[in-house]
Design a protein around this nucleic acid. Structure first.
Length: 843
RNA sequence: GCCCGGGUGGCGAAAUGGCAGACGCAACGGACUUAAAAUCCGUUUUCCGCAAGGAAGUGCGGGUUCGAGUCCCGCCCCGGGCACCA
């Protein structure tokens, strides 16, 4: 054994050992107690930094722990390998995305291995390879067959910098989530997945996901955005000139039908489909057209900003409130969004702040239809709308009802009368999956003049992405210029046809990869139903919070859709979800704290770190840095501390090796222990209990490691040399073996080495997790605190079994305590067994 | 505006309603050394005190309790999600 902790020698050695012994090869067919531990697969973007590492280190520690607890663990890894950055690099640098992607994969794989993270690499999946995307295309076709994939023209989000359309989920504050460029609205014909069919189930099933962070579930609930209300149709009053209208009535969605007797006008979104025909020929027509033109020039962010003042114009038309039969003016205004509801809003200025402001600005009438509980609302005294629930007033037959009773009753009434119905509205929109880019899975569709949209027959898959394309920036997929790719005979009639030139959003690839791992090299099917049923849902999924909505929502949708097709028999993909916090680091430029990223120039490279301190130090520090679900600041001095600890452990074993190995046959015997070894023995078992708890319930790696450090401190406090008693040597032997086993999920290389040096055959992964010896935890004498009125005033040594009465007596007798109760009346004495005695006094 | 988190030493943090600050970092003092690094020993919440000891203390203000970082009510600040959403 070397004196100096030789991390750079032992780490590659054990990495090779794990690989050769195939310790992470999973028997998929016949697992014992299967445990699927999954980390979100990475997009291979150059090199990894220690911020990325947190995800894999946590996952590897969990996988190793579960293995030691007797599970057959499945811990696979793969690559979310399609994506924009590779293609943008191709445009800029002329490197083919295939080449840069595979180079990056190689680098990332080497880095993961250098961290000691072990996966079953025989199950590796790579989403940009035809044997993977063939099945992505196959799933698309299954969706198409069932009407879950459809093509439609709609106003969509266009990122002028990425030169492609984006899903709603990829637009953050009106800008592209990837590059921050303000998105534009364009009307284009695009492919969508019908995720809205699943809105209610995606919402309902969140309640059953007990292993998910509340925060993530909340974000998904917000995103799905269910609101309960009613559709109410306002009939158009006929035009004075007798010309016909394209529609009879204007439907509007409201959650507050109880306020409808206060409706004094109606407002349309500028994009309302029939607006132009509704006003054609009226004196107001040109003003309306000017207004619509102006509104369309305002950017989406300005349109939806609170700060901007609401504008509108009168259309010259009237609609009829079906409850009152009253005629109210129809306006068009920029505060109504076409994307939400029906693009028309019934305006109740007395009870809606936006309507209030608008009515004030344009001098429209305001009418009270809800009273507050005290019945004190008087219009002239109101400074703003009253938006709370209340009692209906001046509301015909509904007058006097509370809002919550009136809402369902009035909606039902609308249905009975045929002018509306109760409706549920979701904020969630269908998922736009077309991308005008090259580096993605081609959408398996051709367009034929005779047959229209024709799906590629399954047996002709995959639609292979051609290699030889010209990478040029533009608003069209490079595939569109590839003549031999584009021109194909129609699969149905054989006539010349054109392929779809768009590729799929890369979130489609990642929506089912957790199923593919089980059938990674299966050429006959996307995934195996029986294997999936055995292994899924994933027991533990680990990844970043940034996917709270995007990937995690899409994957849930896919799972439900595939479930409904009978291809799998579970409807949620991930039983437990853990979202780790980001690793941040202070920028050297401005001293601010930023998420570690290449663009901020504050990355710490694992390569250098491992060269200097070793992988185990990097792992232990990453896990010790703080609670793993919280963001953390990387601190180079902290790395030093983790290193010192590992070196101290190494040195202890190095110095005491012959003594420790000489005690191999000895077993600790409680009866013969002196106080120091008795205390150490207790500490061992307290540590086992604590660390096991920390790893079982939540992911408290930081406190688990702190506990191991405490145990190590205790070991060093009990002297050990060749002349030490059998009893002491036996306890020390057990202490150090416990430390090595307990630490092994975190610092696997060091622990494998020490385990061997302590005379065991590798691998430590096959060592059983230590059991708590309850007898070791027992104490004969305990120290108890005595409080007077809740303040600490003394402490006493008592026997552990002492009854409350004698404890009370001894506490009161205690001289330090006497001082505080002398001359006072003892009102009450509380004895908390094993902890404290609190004497409440007065006077 | 609505909905989630969070606020504890110089710093990262710990604490089933029961000794606040475990563990680590940094700092300071000491040992070893020609010296430095490394290592080891000790101190380290604040205030008063030579000390013994005492007082205060977990964002702020109340409350429940023998006892509150922890539970309840009302605020403040920071982070995140949704939002002209009808």
């Amino acid at each position: 054994m070397k004196e100096k902790y030789p991390f750079s020698e032992i780490e590659p050695k054990w990495q090779q050992f794990w690989e050769e012994e195939a310790l992470f090869r999973t028997n998929l067919e016949a697992p014992e107690n299967p445990y699927y531990c999954l980390m979100m697969f990475p997009y291979p973007s150059g090199t990894l930094h220690v911020g990325h590492g947190r995800n894999y280190i946590i996952g590897d520690a969990v996988a190793r722990y579960k293995m030691m607890r007797g599970h057959t663990v499945l811990s696979p890894m793969g690559w979310d390998a399609f994506g924009l950055p590779a293609e943008n690099a191709a445009i800029k640098l002329g490197v083919h995305p295939r080449q840069s992607t595979f180079e990056n994969i190689e680098t990332a794989k080497r880095q993961l291995q250098a961290w000691g993270c072990c996966y079953d690499w025989s199950l590796e999946v790579t989403s940009c390879l035809p044997d993977y995307y063939k099945w992505t295309q196959w799933i698309f076709l299954q969706f198409y067959k069932r009407g879950l994939a459809y093509k439609s023209e709609a106003p969509v989000n266009w990122c002028p910098s990425c030169n492609t359309v984006l899903a709603n989920e990829q637009v953050v504050d009106g800008a592209c989530e990837r590059c921050d460029t303000v998105v534009e609205k364009r009307r284009l014909s695009q492919w969508f997945f019908k995720i809205t069919d699943y809105a209610q189930r995606l919402l309902d099933d969140l309640d059953a996901l007990e292993g998910w962070p509340e925060r993530v579930k909340m974000m998904q609930r917000n995103w799905i955005g269910r609101s309960d209300g009613a559709r109410i149709d306002f009939r158009l009053a006929p035009r004075a000139d007798g010309r016909p209208d394209p529609i009879e009535a204007v439907p509007c969605f409201t959650t507050r039908v109880d306020t409808i007797y206060g409706c004094t006008y109606m407002v349309l979104a500028p994009e309302f489909p029939h607006l132009d025909r509704l006003v054609d020929g009226l004196p107001e027509a040109s003003a309306v057209r000017d207004f619509v033109a102006t509104a369309s020039r305002i950017s989406a962010i300005d349109r939806t900003s609170d700060a901007i003042e609401k504008n509108g114009v009168f259309t010259g038309r009237q609609v009829v409130n079906p409850y009152t039969g009253e005629t109210v003016p129809l306006w068009v205004a920029d505060y109504v969004l076409m994307e939400y509801g029906t693009g028309a809003v019934m305006a109740v200025p007395a009870h809606d702040t936006r309507d209030w402001a608008f009515a004030r600005k344009y001098d429209l009438p305001i009418r009270l239809s809800i009273q507050n509980p005290d019945q004190t609302l008087v219009l002239p005294e109101m400074a703003d709308a009253y938006t709370e629930d209340g009692l209906l007033t001046d509301s015909g037959p509904f007058t006097g009802l509370p809002s919550q009773e009136a809402i369902p009753r009035m909606a039902t009434y609308a249905a009975e009368q045929g002018f509306g119905e109760p409706t549920v509205h979701f904020r969630l929109r269908d998922w736009l999956i077309s991308r005008q880019r090259y580096w993605g899975a081609p959408i398996p569709i051709v367009y034929c003049d005779q047959c229209g949209i024709v799906p590629i027959p399954e047996e002709q898959l995959p639609v292979v992405l051609p290699d030889d394309v010209a990478f040029m920036p533009g608003g069209e997929s490079p595939l569109a210029r590839h003549e031999s790719f584009m021109n194909v005979p129609c699969p149905t009639c054989g006539a010349p046809a054109r392929r779809e030139s768009d590729t799929m959003d890369t979130f489609v690839d990642s929506s089912w990869y957790f199923l593919r791992y089980l059938s990674a090299s299966d050429e006959t099917q996307a995934f195996d139903t029986a294997l999936c049923d055995r292994w899924l849902p994933v027991d533990q999924y680990i990844g970043g919070i940034e996917h709270a909505i995007l990937h995690l929502l899409y994957a849930r949708f896919f799972t439900k859709a595939l479930h409904d097709m009978g291809l799998i028999h579970f409807s949620e993909p991930f039983a437990q979800l853990f979202t780790q916090g980001m690793i941040c680091k202070r920028s050297e430029k401005d001293g601010q704290l930023y998420k570690m990223s290449k663009s901020k120039g504050n990355v710490v490279s694992p390569d250098e770190l491992i060269r200097e301190y070793g992988a185990d130090t990097s792992r232990v520090y990453t896990l010790f840095i703080g609670p793993p679900e919280r963001d953390a600041e990387w601190n180079d001095r902290g790395v030093e501390g983790a290193f010192r600890f590992l070196r101290r452990l190494w040195r202890w074993v190095y110095e005491k090796q012959s003594i420790l190995n000489g005690a191999r046959e000895l077993r600790p015997d409680l009866a013969s222990m002196e106080t120091p070894e008795r205390d150490l023995y207790r500490k061992i078992h307290e540590s086992i209990r604590r660390i096991t708890q920390d790893l079982d319930g939540a992911f408290h790696f930081n406190t688990a490691i702190a506990q191991i450090m405490e145990l190590m401190n205790a070991v060093e406090d009990v002297p050990l040399d060749a002349s030490s008693s059998d009893s002491r040597r036996a306890v020390h032997r057990e202490a150090i073996e416990s430390i090595v086993v307990l630490l092994s999920p975190f610092a696997p290389h060091l622990c494998e080495e020490l385990w061997q040096e302590l005379g065991h055959a590798p691998s430590i992964l096959r060592a059983p997790w230590p059991e708590v010896n309850e007898a070791a935890l027992h104490r004969a004498q305990i120290e108890m605190v005595i409080q007077v009125n809740g303040k600490n005033r003394g402490r006493i040594e008592v026997s552990a079994g002492a009854d409350a009465q004698s404890l009370e007596a001894e506490a009161v007798r205690n001289p330090q305590v006497q001082k505080w109760i002398e001359g006072k009346t003892v009102r009450k004495v509380i004895v908390v067994p094993g902890r404290l005695v609190n004497i409440a006094v007065s006077g």
